[in-house]
Every structure is written in structure tokens, then in C-alpha cells.
Computed example of a mutant assay.
Amino acid sequence: MDHPRCPAAHPQDPTPCGGPVAVSVLDATGAGAEGCEHHGARLLASLDRGRVYPLPDAPPSAAVRVFTAADTIRPFCWVDGPRAKSSQLSRAENRAREGR
């Protein structure tokens, strides 16, 4: 790999970082990783009850952008295959299925 990626990038996710490390994404137990907005959103989408916080030098609204993007991203979106179970769909897709 030519360029190191942020700590939030999953080893199987082939996408490059989308800017500087700007957010901290935490799981339900408080464990987490710092990452760029792109990988932060992909990580947050893959967590149940995850949270995102801006780092002190983050661009304005970085955490809001990550939270908003994660809503439409499927968990582990780099994994191919059919997706029919609610746990395999984005939060937005699940809301649409439920008519909300």
C-alpha cells in the first residue's frame, strides 16, 4: 500500500482515506478508533450503538457529517453478497422498510 490509512479503516475495506483524521468513533463499550470522515462513517455504520465525536482540530461539523453519512451506509459495506436481513441494511433502509 502506497499510503498508510487511518486507524478506523477496516483491513478488508479497500477504499482510501477521505481527508485527515478528524473523528473518534466509539462502540457501546467505549472502545474505538480515530479516523478520517470517510472511514469513520463506514466504521460507525458497522457498529451497534456506536458514537462519534470530533477531535479537537477537526473541521467544523465533522462528527455531524460522519453521523449523517453512516445512516445510509450498510454495515461492512465492503463485503459483497446479497443483503436481505435487517442487520445487513443501513439504518435508513431499515426505517424505510418499517414505513418510518
Rank of each mutant, 00 (worst) to 15 (best):
G81H: 06
P4K: 04
A84E: 08
L26F: 10
A70Q: 06
N94G: 03
P14L: 03
V66D: 03
E37S: 12
T29V: 04
S24W: 09
G35D: 08
V79A: 03
G19F: 05
V25W: 10
I73Y: 09
E98W: 07
Q88N: 02
A45S: 10
E34C: 13
A92C: 05
M1R: 09
R65L: 12
R42E: 04
S87K: 06
L26K: 14
T72W: 07
S86E: 15
F67W: 10
A9C: 15
A41Y: 04
Y53H: 15
V21Y: 04
L44G: 00
T29M: 09
T72I: 02
P60E: 04
D71H: 11
C6T: 03
D13I: 06
Q88I: 00
H38N: 08
P11A: 09
P20T: 10
V52D: 02
D57W: 13
R97E: 13
V79F: 10
A8E: 08
A70T: 08
T15N: 08
T29G: 03
P75I: 00
E98Q: 13
T72H: 13
A33E: 15
S87N: 09
P4W: 04
T29E: 12
P56R: 14
P82H: 04
G19H: 06
L47A: 06
G50R: 11
R91V: 04
V52G: 01
L26A: 14
T72E: 14
P11M: 01
R51K: 11
P54H: 08
P60D: 01
S86A: 13
P59L: 07
R97Q: 14
C17A: 12
R51L: 12
A41E: 04
M1L: 06
R100S: 10
W78T: 03
A58Q: 08
C77S: 14
A45F: 02
R49V: 09
V79H: 11
D13C: 14
R51V: 07
R83W: 01
P16D: 15
D71G: 00
H38Q: 13
G32K: 13
L43V: 01
P20F: 01
